[in-house]
Computed example of a mutant assay.
Amino acid sequence: MYSLWRRLLFRYDPERAHEWAVRGLESLQSFPALLSLSRKFYAVENPALEVSLWGLSFPNPVGLAAGFDKNATVYPALSAFGFGHIEVGTITPLPQPGNRKPRLFRLPREEALINRMGFNNRGARQAMEHFTRLPRPRLPIGINIGKNRNTPNEQAFQDYRCSLRALYRHGDYFVINISSPNTEGLRDLHRPEALKPLLEDILGEREVLREETGEIRPLLLKISPDLTDEALETAVDVSLEAGIDGFIATNTTLSREGISSPLREEAGGLSGRPLAKRSTEVIRRIFRHTDGRVPIIGTGGIFTGEDAYEKIRAGASLVQVYTGMIYRGPSIARKINRELLQLLKRDGFSHIRQAVGKDA
């Protein structure tokens, strides 16, 4: 069924098609009965898939990555499609339009996307209003936060602290995004001399908010796939020393290895199938380097249960999809979870946590 819709949608500009999808989901949220039916249809409920991390309960390990629900407007509808968690954003303190259009490109032959969106969003205040108004799903909601493009890196901590404070009561976990290639200079924040004070400032703000609210929210760092192995391990060490609670591996890549499409020359981050191998390598290296002491969410090129399982066996406790949903449709979480149950049974595991890091 989705293949027919995809054929139609792929005739149009990718960003326009995405806007139509968001509007459709907003309309769906007006019909609670339809949402309830969707949940029953897409849900795969099995204790073997339930994951507990950071004091949070995930009904299954397959989440939706940041980038789809940029403004926290449709996470209630998205939660009806069988995901174990939803991550919204990236959200910046102030609204910003992002980069000039066109800025999103499909590469169907490679099952990939190139984007140079540039953190286009309506800002933290608008997101806060959406969270206050919309119903809360029964699954964890993550909030991905970034800096405004005009904020110098030396002052980036102010942007992250501002968004964290504004949205603290609404997120179950927060992701510090320093790895998008589409905001000039952002990835420079991976360098230890920049990363250490940045994380210390953000974690310090988290401590103040913990005292104010009585609640502690886990903070994760989203890692670039384009770091050298040495730079990756250094960033991990600095992050753990500062007190980070986990990692997301990885963001999009600037590499065009194996891409034959003429669109390979477009600037921006590449996601989808071509990213799968590198993101798995980064997951495995982080898991080995930390002896599996810190949770990892794996993302990049996940289309099937085998793809997800590969990342879990490399060291990911949870996984996220995005490009895979664009190509495979809203039933992707259901399909992946069903396949994961088969793979666990094949390998003699009674629970998903038994597979984490087995190939690391």
Rank of each mutant, 00 (worst) to 15 (best):
M1E: 11
Y2M: 09
Y2S: 06
S3W: 09
R6L: 06
R7M: 03
D13P: 06
E15I: 02
A17D: 07
V22M: 08
V22S: 04
R23W: 11
L25V: 09
S30L: 13
F41L: 15
A43Y: 05
E45N: 15
E45W: 13
L49C: 09
E50T: 12
L53D: 10
L56T: 04
L56I: 10
S57F: 04
S57I: 04
L64H: 06
L64C: 13
L64F: 14
G67S: 11
G67L: 10
K70E: 05
N71G: 11
A72E: 00
V74I: 03
V74A: 00
Y75M: 14
A77I: 07
G82K: 09
G82M: 12
F83A: 01
F83C: 05
H85L: 11
E87K: 02
V88H: 01
I91W: 04
I91K: 02
T92N: 00
T92C: 00
P93A: 07
Q96T: 15
Q96K: 13
P97A: 04
G98C: 10
G98T: 08
G98K: 08
R103M: 08
E111V: 05
F119G: 10
N121D: 09
R122L: 15
A124G: 10
A124I: 07
A124K: 02
A124W: 11
R125M: 08
Q126H: 11
Q126L: 11
F131W: 07
L134R: 00
L139T: 10
G142W: 13
G142A: 15
I143A: 08
N144K: 01
K147N: 07
N148A: 03
T151M: 11
E154M: 02
Q155F: 05
F157W: 15
F157K: 10
Q158C: 08
D159Q: 03
D159M: 03
Y160F: 14
Y160L: 14
Y160W: 06
S163Q: 08
L167S: 05
Y168M: 07
D172M: 10
D172I: 12
I178L: 05
S180F: 05
S180I: 06
R187A: 00
R187T: 02
E193L: 11
E193Q: 14
P197G: 01
L198K: 05
E200P: 00
G204V: 07
G204E: 09
E205C: 11
V208D: 06
E211Y: 01
T213K: 09
P218L: 09
L220Q: 08
I223A: 01
S224A: 15
L227Q: 07
L227W: 08
L232V: 00
L232T: 03
E233K: 12
G243I: 08
I244W: 00
D245R: 04
T250Q: 00
I259W: 02
P262Y: 06
P262T: 06
P274N: 05
L275F: 01
L275V: 05
L275M: 07
A276K: 15
I283G: 04
R284G: 10
D291C: 13
V294H: 10
G300Y: 06
G301A: 02
E306L: 09
G315L: 01
L318H: 03
L318M: 04
V321L: 02
Y322W: 06
I326C: 04
I326V: 15
P330D: 12
I332S: 14
K335I: 14
I336S: 04
I336P: 06
R338H: 05
Q342N: 10
F349H: 14
Q354S: 12
K358W: 13
A360P: 13
